[in-house]
């Protein structure tokens, strides 16, 4: 099975090709530059260098978020359209689950995260034992301070994995001290090859057309509109009492 993987959920642009469980190639760049300029050229180059014809691809894997809205949409739109055009399945994987794979040989808690601005993080909670990574919490957005408070109440070391490590490392160490573990800088960067591997045994998305990112949050205008409507309904129903 030939799997093409695409991850643009953070500033890291990653694309990889895996044949069954054999990695054929990866192109990853870490520049904070527009994904539009990097993704399609990387896919074309990867196919060329591995002598893979587009029509030999069997499935396409993509990170579904959470992460940068625009970044996730770029990856998903490219992946969705390619999968549709080739008539092959699309497999979606959480960006947090992908990042957690980099802690495979750690024994303890794994907390992958992306910075979500205003001291908020996109994060998920995983536990790793004997090379098996298990999810313990769904992906969500949390305030850094809330996350640290929760981690303090957990037993054992916590491995933090993030391309945005430098933004929050100091505060994490202040609160958690030795409980907090950081790997080498590369450990915090999502690997597209891992995404391709995960996708080999994963159920594809049921309906390609309606597949959309996992944004975690509503668009701001949408959230405000819903809140205003709920308030209006509240006051009209209380008047009716």
């Amino acid at each position: 099975m030939n799997v093409l993987a695409i991850d643009t959920s953070s500033y890291v642009m990653g694309t990889a090709l895996v044949k069954d469980s054999l990695p054929l190639g990866e192109i990853t760049t870490h520049e904070k530059k527009n994904h539009s300029l990097r993704l399609a050229p990387a896919i074309r180059e990867l196919l060329r260098q591995t002598d893979m014809q587009e029509n030999q691809l069997d499935r396409i894997a993509v990170t579904e978020g959470p992460g940068s809205y625009t970044g996730v949409r770029i990856g998903i739109t490219t992946a969705k359209t390619m999968a549709w055009a080739l008539g092959i399945p699309l497999v979606a994987v959480s960006s947090m689950e992908l990042l957690a794979q980099n802690g495979r040989y750690f024994d303890g808690w794994i907390v992958p995260f992306y910075d979500a601005r205003r001291t908020q993080l996109y994060t998920g909670l995983f536990k790793c034992m004997n090379g098996e990574i298990e999810r313990r919490e769904t992906d969500q957005m949390k305030l850094l301070e809330d996350l640290l408070h929760e981690m303090k109440n957990l037993d054992g070391p916590v491995l933090f994995l993030s391309p945005d490590r430098l933004i929050h490392e100091q505060r994490i160490r202040e609160v958690l001290g030795d409980q907090a573990v950081f790997g080498a800088p590369l450990d915090g960067l999502p690997r597209p090859g891992e995404l391709a591997q995960l996708a080999v045994n994963r159920e594809p998305v049921a309906d390609l057309h309606s597949f959309t990112p996992n944004y975690i949050r509503l668009a701001e205008a949408e959230a405000k509109w819903r809140a205003a409507r709920a308030k209006a309904e509240d006051s009209s129903s209380s008047q009716g009492d």
Partner: peptide
């Protein structure tokens, strides 16, 4: 953000074909 969806759909088609 809106332009990027069309642009990447077109690129996906171009990459696939």
């Amino acid at each position: 953000g809106a332009l990027l969806i069309g642009v990447h759909a077109a690129k996906g088609l171009s990459l696939a074909t």
